[in-house]
Amino acid sequence: MDARELTMVEAVTLALRRAMLDDPSVVLLGEDIGTNGGVFRATEGLKAEFGYKRVMDTPLAESMIAGMSVGMATQGLKPVAEIQFMGFIFAAMEQIVCHAARMRNRTRGRLHCPLVIRAPFGGGIGAPEHHSESTEALFAHIPGLRVVIPSSPVRAYGLLLSAIRDPDPVLFLEPKRIYRIVRQRVTDHGKGLPLDTCFTLRQGDDITLVSWGAAMHETLQAATQLQQRGVSVEVIDVATISPLDMDTILSSVMRTGRCVIVQEAARNGGIASEISARLAEDAMAYLRAPVQRVTGFDTPMPYPRHEHFYLPTVADIVNACEKTLEAPSTTAWRPYEIF
């Protein structure tokens, strides 16, 4: 079977093409996605291959793109809409929150909404203001919506295929900073990856590192540095941040007793906070050190000249891990010990 070294954005294109070949009800729509192939080229060549009726260049209106996708999805199409940058998704928020995520519930299952909204997200590419948001937690908070974030070409291919095949709405957030920095052999086998599970990328016993999206890149580098110093690191890519697979994270942290969560998004109210809360609720007795979060700041992403002041670095992650590993308790802290 054909396997090629692909970047993540090429893997996205490959999955879109595979989904369109397999299912004639799959249609793409968005701004600049047709003739131009998308501003990041994620839909490159697809209009030429499938025609304008399946690769639709829409007028410039995000609410309309999301709203028409809702209408299309209720009538047997599987729209895969592109919002050009996540910073422009807010005009579509009402449609996503009030309709896409509620159609099945509101109609008690009579209608459903099998749509995918793809949006490049995150900072680090030197783009203008409003082009670098990481607001995934806003959407993870919305019941009825799956929020999926790949962090490698292979997972981009497999997760996007599953997202398109899913009978419910999926927000598929593509970390554009790593669109082209890694190549991986991707086989066009048409197999999806599960949307209800985290991916354990490395196994280890001393500490669990949890991340998703572009920050996975720095997290893996930090893990390598720690491993070189003899620390056994488990690395988990959350991938689907909602609904959240806590089983994988809990079973890892119950074993390692230490956890650092890395997110590019602002610190307050993020997915790292949710994971941290769940660990406190369900794994307190197993923790040997407080859970640490390495995050962005509670500000907008700075203008591109100063993005590096904001983004979590490998050193930040290593430092947080060292602090966690140095925590005094060598045996599990148990609630009853304080009495």
Partner: peptide, 18 residues
């Protein structure tokens, strides 16, 4: 939610036309 159904209907019409 006011007027949000207008774009749904446009999408429905796209499905019918397609």
């Amino acid at each position: 939610p006011i007027a949000t159904q207008m774009t749904h209907a446009a999408g429905v019409a796209v499905a019918l036309k397609s």
